[in-house]
Design a protein around this nucleic acid. Sequence first.
DNA 1: ATTAGTTGTCATAAT
DNA 2: GGATTATGACAACTA
Length: 751
Amino acid sequence: MLSLKKYLTEGLLQFTILLSLIGVRVDVDTYLTSQLPPLREIILGPSSAYTQTQFHNLRNTLDGYGVHPKSIDLDNYFTARRLLSQVRALDRFQVPTTEVNAWLVHRDPEGSVSGSQPSSGLTLESSSGLQDVTGPDNGVRESETEQGFSEDLEDLGAVAPPVSGDLTKEDIDLIDILWRQDIDLGAGRETFDYSHRQKEQDVDKELQDGAEQDDTWSGEGAEALARNLLVDGETGESFPAQFPADISSITEAVPSESEPPGLQNNLLSPLLTGTDSPFDLEQQWQDLMSIMEMQAMEVNTSTNEILYSAPPGDPLSTNYSLAPNTPINQNVSLHQASLGGCSQDFSLFSPEVESLPVASSSTLLPLVPSNSTSLNSTFGSTNLAGLFFPPQLNGTANDTAGPELPDPLGGLLDEAMLDEISLMDLAIEEGFNPVQASQLEEEFDSDSGLSLDSSHSPSSLSSSEGSSSSSSSSSSSSSSSSSSSSSSSSSSASSSFSEEGAVGYSSDSETLDLEEAEGAVGYQPEYSKFCRMSYQDPSQLSCLPYLEHVGHNHTYNMAPSALDSADLPPPSALKKGSKEKQADFLDKQMSRDEHRARAMKIPFTNDKIINLPVEEFNELLSKYQLSEAQLSLIRDIRRRGKNKMAAQNCRKRKLDTILNLERDVEDLQRDKARLLREKVEFLRSLRQMKQKVQSLYQEVFGRLRDENGRPYSPSQYALQYAGDGSVLLIPRTLADQQARRQERKPKDRRK
DNA sequence: ATTAGTTGTCATAAT
DNA sequence: GGATTATGACAACTA
């Protein structure tokens, strides 16, 4: 529960941040284009901006504006327009991604239909096989550069038209490389799935020949790949055809050789070198990542992907790399609230993380509309944006200003955003803002319930389980609780806390889930014990064979032999020897108290002694003339018997609580890792946004001219953004003063 | 023979 | 206050 709350809180915070970012962006946009009423309306306007149509209208308006430039200074106009487009690109990162997605989507069906492997289906097998050819380095690098490649590849793949032709050795190598990369892209997650499921699939395949193409691709394709590198050709898919094209395009783009390492370097280089991004942030991420790794194994894959997924690189890559962030918007947006927190919980997460490597793929496509809506709402709800404007004014903030120009925007972003982020951290780490918590609690509860039904979210499971088991753990309900817990464990192991939440989201989270699920599976023995204990519930005693034996056997005082014969083997088997053996066996089966009872000639069963209600028990005792020793023994038997049950229940409960705690810990760790990942994500996107805004600021500022046509000195003047959407060019000193003023206000508000 | 896990029992506190 | 339950500790048993 708590984790959920945290999550949602953070989601809101992130949402806020995004809003602010967007608001900033829009604002700049407005300024740049001098007058864009729609934008301002969105920023400052009320709920109207929430409607999707509104948003689209906005877009249309904007586009229309671009299409029909009015008589303006052409130079300014085009500049402004270009800047505007850039700014717009900030919230449109997904567009290129969308294209890529479409490509991927098409591809999969092809593979499945053809019955051969989609490139995504190649998975690790192929990659490993390729590694032999390409060289040892690849294996290592592959993981590192996985994401970067993915992006590049996506681009290439999306662009490259399918072409067929003969393949040279180099071509093949290139193809292999591409494939492998592609695999990383398309199948990064599926790979895991595949590895997990491979055996099953193989078995299934053997059992049902070529029943399903999906199976066939995974099975045959993998085998084929393992056998031969050229399997591509064997599969006869479109791939072989595609890849030559890819090669050509790649070779053009990358003059260097087909040498795997070389190619990788080439592919990688733009990402790494081209990035204007200072590596401090990267390092932060890495630090975070290392922490995450230490704390949760699960994070590894995803983290790597994150780390390398979006190394901001060439302009394209930066733009595209932003795409992953957009899912965040979606997730954070109202959708989340409506869809249910738990599933969303991870969907929020998985999509971004997963979508990154996979080209932020297919998931994005369907989400685009929602995304737009979310953005729209984002715009609309910009009272938040209003919150961020003041910080913007702070402008001259300490934080990284551009080398050339002191960057008010940079300061704005840094201060406002990072401040918020830090607040977010505080909120998360220190517990919940009570107000937020109270507000969100209901949603969470309902959400968890929903998610529990639809998608087994980890947190929901744990919480519900914990509550149910703990509350109802007493004897009578123990069986049910045990079953529930066991079932939950199994579910966690199989579908595994499907953190994916939303349907489209698979992959990373899945793999994580699997890993975690494995961990959970490790506790199965305990579960078995647990179940064992549970079925010893007093209420179910009579149903259990073993206990039944005990019960019947203890009627030995009355008619042991008859009972024995009835209970045990058929009459035919009742020979003397077997009888004796059975007697021995029964003797062994009897507890000490039973033996004692027999020795003392107690006239009723231990079962009765133990389980009868006090009144009946007393009645029973009153019916017989019992010696003091017998009475004492009977009381002891009763006491011990009850205690025995109590001990069993106690142990069961204890185990139950331990397991629940364990699950809680896992959930918390997962949440923590997820939050860290998200944090990293946002930091990165923040960074990119900041860079964008910075460059835009510089560009705008650089184009400003005074009456004499001379540029303004950055050291003396600065652009300032007012809350009403206007932009002012003011002296630095004034800007600084205002910045300080503005600085205090928001902080006061917060307190 | 050692060991870890399980189960029963006792003592005691809590209900 | 007695009965019942819960639980820690110990010992016996088992694999």
